[in-house]
């Protein structure tokens, strides 16, 4: 599969924790302004791969990668690349909502401030919260601690916080796994509306979610002998779910649906 102008592409990517190779030989291209889902059984390296896209992995001691990840024509792991700059351009939303113990307003404004935002902060906060479908719920309590929000609200706040920086790609690691179905639906709608401005990569355990919300899907699986994960199939979501090429994908996808 060859995509026109992918945002991110990996070349023979291996990711290690110490000596343990958690992810082997990944070659995928993340298409621009689309939602790409990464699915696969637990422990197959989905989060590891996702975190490699904005160099969050290196916050874990003793990790390293082989191969390269190309972002806008440059290797993210090149010698003169600043990981801070990478994370500024490629944002992330985590599995568990992790708002700062600051006010709701500060949560959104904080990163904009450290990056030297020139515009009107209040407007940025409002527009980010609006895009994250949270504005109406919190507009009167902006000064309140973010920790007082519900889990679903907190997660949307984390998304608002990520978009406030105006990254080009947003990585989401099971953003809805801690949420109830209604909040999950809200997040999915949100992703659809964010698609026109951002490229989204999402890890999910939920087959329905992947089928429903994503444009492309990447199926990961553990190699039987090495306990190391790799991408076994990467397709348009429709194709992957209806006419999987790989037998393992078929088993996994249908197994979940019975």
């Amino acid at each position: 599969m060859n995509l026109i102008s992918p945002v991110l592409e990996t070349h023979n990517l291996n990711i290690y924790y110490g000596d343990f190779r958690a992810v082997t030989d990944v070659n995928i291209q993340i298409p621009r302004h689309k939602i790409t889902a990464i699915i696969g059984p637990s422990g197959c390296g989905k989060s590891t791969l996702l975190r490699a896209f904005n160099r969050m992995n290196e916050l874990v001691p003793n990790t390293h990668i082989e191969g390269e990840i190309i972002f806008e024509g440059q290797n993210l792991y090149g010698r003169d690349i600043d990981p801070v700059e990478v994370r500024y351009r490629i944002g992330m939303v985590f599995q568990k909502p992790n708002p700062f113990p600051k006010s709701i307003y500060e949560n959104v404004a904080w990163a904009a401030r450290i990056h030297g935002y020139r515009g009107n902060l209040d407007e940025l906060v409002e527009s980010s919260l609006t895009k994250a479908a949270l504005w109406d719920e919190v507009k009167d309590i902006l000064k309140q601690s973010a920790l007082s929000l519900s889990g679903g609200q907190q997660q949307r706040l984390c998304i608002a916080r990520a978009i406030a920086v105006q990254p080009e790609v947003i990585l989401m690691d099971e953003p809805a796994s801690a949420l109830d179905p209604i909040a999950t639906l809200k997040i999915e709608e949100l992703m659809q509306s964010l698609k026109k401005d951002y490229t989204i990569v999402i890890v999910t355990h939920n087959m329905q979610q992947a089928a429903r919300a994503s444009d492309y899907t990447s199926m990961m699986m553990l190699a039987e002998n090495t306990r190391s994960g790799t991408v076994i199939e990467f397709e348009e979501t429709n194709t992957l779910f209806t006419r999987p090429k790989d037998k393992r994908t078929e088993d996994y996808v249908t197994g979940r649906f019975g």
């Binding site: 806008e72 440059q74 690349i81 600043d82 801070v84 700059e85 030297g116 935002y117 080009e168």
Partner: peptide, 21 residues
């Protein structure tokens, strides 16, 4: 340093080298 940026007109000054220094 990543130079090319999709949105050419950035709202952020982001003087990263200063911050890193």
């Amino acid at each position: 340093m990543i130079v090319k940026r999709m949105r050419e007109t950035s709202d952020f000054s982001n003087n990263l080298s200063l911050r890193q220094r």
